[in-house]
């Protein structure tokens, strides 16, 4: 349902932001990574949308997944804005917090929903 892709995208954006903050990577590499994470989030959302729930239980699960993916998408977008550093953009620290929150939400949801692949 796109959860794995979303977890990977959030992890990738987190790593890009952390290494950029530590001065290990250049701005162009970090920005490229966050852009790619954004593209991956779009793919994950598409995958989730394609999933058609057959009963009320799966419909409720889908709602939770859609909510988590939406939050993750926002977190990745904020990471991109934090890296660009334009006035009014979120700080790197708050973007990182948001990514970490999103990552743990996705992990919790994945444990609840997905059988081991």
């Amino acid at each position: 349902m796109g959860l794995r892709e979303a977890q990977s995208a959030v992890g990738s954006a987190t790593l890009a932001l952390t290494t950029s903050q530590d001065g290990d990577t250049t701005a162009s590499v970090a920005e490229t990574m966050v852009d790619e994470a954004g593209t991956r989030m779009t793919a994950a959302s598409k995958q989730a949308t394609a999933f058609k729930p057959t009963d009320q239980r799966t419909a409720a699960q889908m709602e939770a997944v859609t909510q988590a993916l939406g939050d993750a998408d926002t977190a990745v977008r904020h990471a991109g804005e934090a890296l660009s550093g334009y006035p009014g953009a979120p700080s790197v620290r708050s973007a990182l917090d948001e990514l970490k929150q999103s990552s743990s939400d996705l992990e919790r949801l994945a444990k609840k929903l997905e059988p081991p692949r």
């Binding site: 794995r4 892709e5 977890q7 990738s12 290494t19 590499v29 990574m33 790619e36 991956r40």
Partner: peptide, 14 residues
Amino acid sequence: PRGIDVDALSQTVL
């Protein structure tokens, strides 16, 4: 360990 699946070159060099 971070659950990141590689699908871009940037992840390979990071």
